[in-house]
Design a binder for these strands. Structure first.
Lengths: 83, 83
DNA sequence: CTTAATTTGTACGTATGTATT
DNA sequence: GAATACATACGTACAAATTAA
């Protein structure tokens, strides 16, 4: 799954999609931390605000949870209702 | 209600609070447009990203609704469930 | 229909503050 | 105190939707 800089879908949505897919397929496991914002910036070659927008989407959708000073964690359940 | 640049509460939260208060007291009426982002930037003397963060909060809370190319509108109901 | 003006959307880069380890 | 990581905020540029001329 690559990022299409020219496509109609915003970068932050595409990135959120890639991360969501990794959660789905187990690359990023429940209750574990996903890579730091800086690392995601490097991987996707985008700015930090763009990575943060992607993470914000994931948090809103309940797939992840961000903790100040620690990191962003994959939600710890299958139903998206509990930690 | 003034903005406290030094207080612990983020600017965007303070601004969202001021706008919410204006919705409450009727200064901004249901289904009517609130001032454009640029106007709010001038009034509160903050950057556009900060104003947008404030509006995003209001949208998330259901107090307003933003339409691309048009503006941000006060929710048209009392229950926050319909437009 | 084309153009311009207004307004919101996306994205960049940067600086500084705060929380955790 | 230092290193790591997220939070807030600035300024800027250009794209896209809406409306009016």
């Amino acid at each position: 799954m690559a990022i299409d800089i020219d496509g109609p879908e915003p970068l932050y949505e595409q990135i959120a999609g890639v991360i969501a897919a990794r959660i789905d397929d187990g690359s990023y496991q429940p209750r574990r931390r996903i890579p730091a914002e800086a690392a995601l910036c490097e991987e996707f070659e985008v700015s930090r605000p763009t990575v943060r927008s992607a993470i914000q989407l994931l948090n809103q959708r309940g797939l992840t949870r961000t903790v100040h000073g620690k990191g962003t964690y994959v939600a710890g359940d299958v139903n998206g209702l509990r930690a």
